[in-house]
């Protein structure tokens, strides 16, 4: 009987303890699991982000197009495309008509998103054909720094009927390539330099055999031959030099282990008229950009953007140009 009050006390304490311990219980706090992102790199952008970025940029470009004013272009463009579009808009100001090749379709057939964690980064996007059935455009957007935004760096018109290499789907993302990528028939940097040589020297180039024939090369050769013909009639001369621009190269790994290389190659076309004649602009665009007094020699500077597919060493394929863009940016009489 004497134990009873004690028992009651103990029971009371136990009950109180239980009440406290069970009363405010919220369950165990979840723990953050260790990140496993190192195993599989994620794409730098989602497709939706790419679309947003592209749409915004194209809207800015469209605004500039409609105003034929290159002032705001820097917001949306960089690299060779900035030079090219600026020139196109200046030409349009003069001619009153924007060249049809400047059209950029908003629908895309494919986008290639990198998985690289560093900068600069580049996104390759292939559009559909334009409304007037021009060929597809290969757009290259780059982000130079984490604190910068993507801008349209390059645009090439893909050759009709060209077969493009395959890329990893954007949900997985592709790795970006490097100028010195090994395991290819040649490094991207070599490919660009050799292609420039082929453009300059045509079939006489020592590298002519390394490249499959392409539309751009053929057209350029034809143009050069036509001009050459005229020049020869006037006892004039013409020469064109092609030189890759250092650092202006964007590379994306393809699914088959090759590289798609988009690079800027500047070219200077010097035409000297003979027999005391004046050398005149060779095209409407040159004419629009030329505002001075013609002399015997005319130097036209072109910006070329070429897209080369550099296959892997094992493939047994040659390097192929799949797309190109060429625009005169400066015409001067010297």
């Amino acid at each position: 009987m004497t134990r009873r009050p004690l028992s009651i006390l103990v029971a009371g304490l136990l009950a109180a303890g239980m009440a406290v311990s069970f009363g405010a219980c919220e369950g165990t706090v979840p723990q953050v699991s260790a990140p496993t992102s190192d195993g599989s790199p994620t794409p730098d952008l989602s497709e939706a982000q790419e679309e947003t970025i592209r749409t915004d940029l194209l809207k800015t470009i469209e605004d500039c197009n409609s105003q034929k004013d290159p002032t705001g272009l820097e917001q949306a463009m960089t690299g060779p495309e900035l030079q090219i579009r600026t020139s196109e808009l200046l030409v349009a100001q003069k001619t009153g008509k924007l060249d049809a090749k400047t059209a950029i379709p908003t629908d895309i057939s494919q986008t290639v998103i990198p998985t690289d964690s560093g900068w600069p980064r580049s996104v390759f996007t292939i559009t559909e054909t334009t409304e007037d059935q021009q060929s597809k455009r290969l757009l290259v957007f780059t982000q130079g720094d984490a604190r910068e935004n993507y801008k349209l760096w390059g645009l090439t018109r893909l050759f009709q009927g060209v077969s493009m290499p395959k890329f990893t789907v954007p949900q997985i993302g592709s790795a970006m390539g490097h100028e010195e990528d090994a395991g290819l028939v040649m490094t991207p940097k070599e490919a660009v330099a050799r292609y420039a040589d082929v453009l300059q020297n045509g079939d006489q180039s020592q590298y002519a055999g390394d490249f499959d024939g392409d539309y751009f090369r053929e057209e350029l050769a034809k143009l050069s031959a036509t001009v050459q013909e005229g020049m020869e009639r006037n006892k004039g001369t013409q020469s064109q030099t092609f030189s890759p621009v250092e650092g202006q190269m964007q590379i994306m790994r393809t699914a088959d282990g090759g590289d798609l290389v988009v690079a800027q190659i500047d070219s200077v076309w010097t035409r000297t008229a003979g027999e005391g004649r004046e050398s005149q602009p060779a095209s409407d665009a040159e004419k629009a950009l030329f505002d001075g007094k013609a002399t015997s020699t005319m130097k036209a500077t072109y910006v070329n953007v070429i897209a080369l597919y550099v296959p892997s060493e094992k493939s047994g394929l040659k390097v192929t140009a799949v797309g190109a863009e060429r625009q005169v940016v400066k015409v001067e009489a010297v």
Partner: peptide, 15 residues
Amino acid sequence: ASQSENQVSFADSDM
């Protein structure tokens, strides 16, 4: 730190 001259504001970054 980034030395870029074309820095965008935090909220405007594409990322």
